[in-house]
Design a protein around this nucleic acid. Sequence first.
DNA 1: CGAATCTATAGGCTCAGCCTTGAGATCGCA
DNA 2: TGCGATCTCAAGGCTGAGCCTATAGATTCG
Lengths: 305, 305
Amino acid sequence: MLSLHQLTVFLAVYEQGSLTRAAEELGYAQPSVSEQIRGLERTLGVTLFRRVGRGVVPTTVADTLRPHAERTLAAAEETRLAAQRVKRFETGTIRFGMFGVARLYAGAGLVADVLARHPGVRVELVGQNSSEVAEDLRRGRLEAAMIAMPSVESEGMQVTPVARDEIVYISADPETLSSPITAKKLAQASLVMPETTWRSTDSVRTLLRQMLHETGVNPATRIEVEDVEIAVELVGLGLADSVIPRGAAVQLLPRLAPNAGWVSMKPKLYDMFAVVHRAGATLSPAAQLMIELATKRIQSIATPM
Amino acid sequence: MLSLHQLTVFLAVYEQGSLTRAAEELGYAQPSVSEQIRGLERTLGVTLFRRVGRGVVPTTVADTLRPHAERTLAAAEETRLAAQRVKRFETGTIRFGMFGVARLYAGAGLVADVLARHPGVRVELVGQNSSEVAEDLRRGRLEAAMIAMPSVESEGMQVTPVARDEIVYISADPETLSSPITAKKLAQASLVMPETTWRSTDSVRTLLRQMLHETGVNPATRIEVEDVEIAVELVGLGLADSVIPRGAAVQLLPRLAPNAGWVSMKPKLYDMFAVVHRAGATLSPAAQLMIELATKRIQSIATPM
DNA sequence: CGAATCTATAGGCTCAGCCTTGAGATCGCA
DNA sequence: TGCGATCTCAAGGCTGAGCCTATAGATTCG
């Protein structure tokens, strides 16, 4: 079997024209070098050096093989270097899970943070919905993720809360916003709920259901959409009200529904942000970096825990 | 230390997504594959696969490293193939020593023979004079050579005669050619001697000296030139006569001195062609090929021995 | 919830690969 | 010509890499 070691020794002998000098250069004893060359000659089935009195002389076969050996060793070295560069975040890909409204808190800004520190890396923020992220984590395609309160059953998953954010009621009607929203008011409301929020915030969904159930009314969502942005736009158009995390409201209302505002619920509800990864896993430096930066960014908007 | 074996196993695992399946593909037991991957991860200092329940999943580091690993293995394979091609004479360089008048007998035609059999190879016929060829053989730069009777001291050299050729006297004067040249006639002649012939044909030189000495005359060479071609041309111009091997005369006279002819010496003298290489060396297939072809070609002109 | 599947670990074996020592060959110089 | 220096090769011993079998632990699937 051909080996990089054999090629290294071959080149050393070729350049030195002597087994002894090659051995010195490589830090080996001379017989070891001799054995390597013999082994290479045997595996290739050719004679590489003519043993002639004092020293050895490369054959024309050795001349032919030399550039190939050099290319092979260069490629191997390049492989090694690539690993080192990835280790130092000079290159490579960092993949991180993030779904639900979490991306509103730490999406583009998080990517910017990573690129500011490590200009060479590729960043992938993956995850459309909770089940996809949960699946990716379970299957190992994702090492870690930042999510807005997992409906992910924590089967074998380690969930670490990092911040919480109030759930608020948003509306384009100033009258509605004049006082906190009680269960009774909520039951009478006409709501648009984004799928992402709805699905990702288990506690909120449960609490909302509870509040609605108390009034004897079934799901009051008049409209269901995929993106929270669309929900906010619809609120801005006065077609419905909605319930979203405060950070999302602060960030989206001015841009998508400048005429709308937000008010607390009564009692107050909270959404939760958490880091999640497989229980018992040792996190890679890349994952640790992403967790650190995402946590920092989310905690600057929501309330640290 | 990085090894090709590790990279091979790495790619197998990457493609199969499973240590067990990779082990089957490679014909190993599963723990061996596990050990190789662990070794590679240790030498590179990175995590390549996330062990997750059933099977393993490549990390982004593995994604980055894969093309490098593939390139490295491809280069190694190319090295191996290059050796095989050289072995089969599909490519590579064949170097063969040949000096003196031998090239007139087997020069261009010999190259043609080699290329006809092995179109891919490079052919080098090296050697200007006997001492250079002798030195190259001694130093190992040349594996074997076909020479016209060595002044090479056969110190550690194995010399195998393959043919002999008569030494003839050439002249542009028909009168001179009417009968064999005796020592007496030779002493009176005005000669042009080519360095190559002069130096390479030890026996001839000795015999000529002897013949001349018997008549009490010192070296009768009026002109000394480097190439036998020039000597023949001078003979054609009628400026001097010369003494060269018969084969050379047959080949060169019609072309360079059509008005000249040749006649035997009396007693007859013979030049010798021989294969020479280091004593005790096992000849490479390339050298054996050259010896075979060169011998065949020379023997078709000169007298086999 | 049990069977199947997969990885990790432990223990044992063989051989590659390194070392040291010494023999054999060659070269350079007195 | 002979002797010392230099170099390769051969032999023997040692360590560790690498492979195996058997088994435990974890996860998935029916």
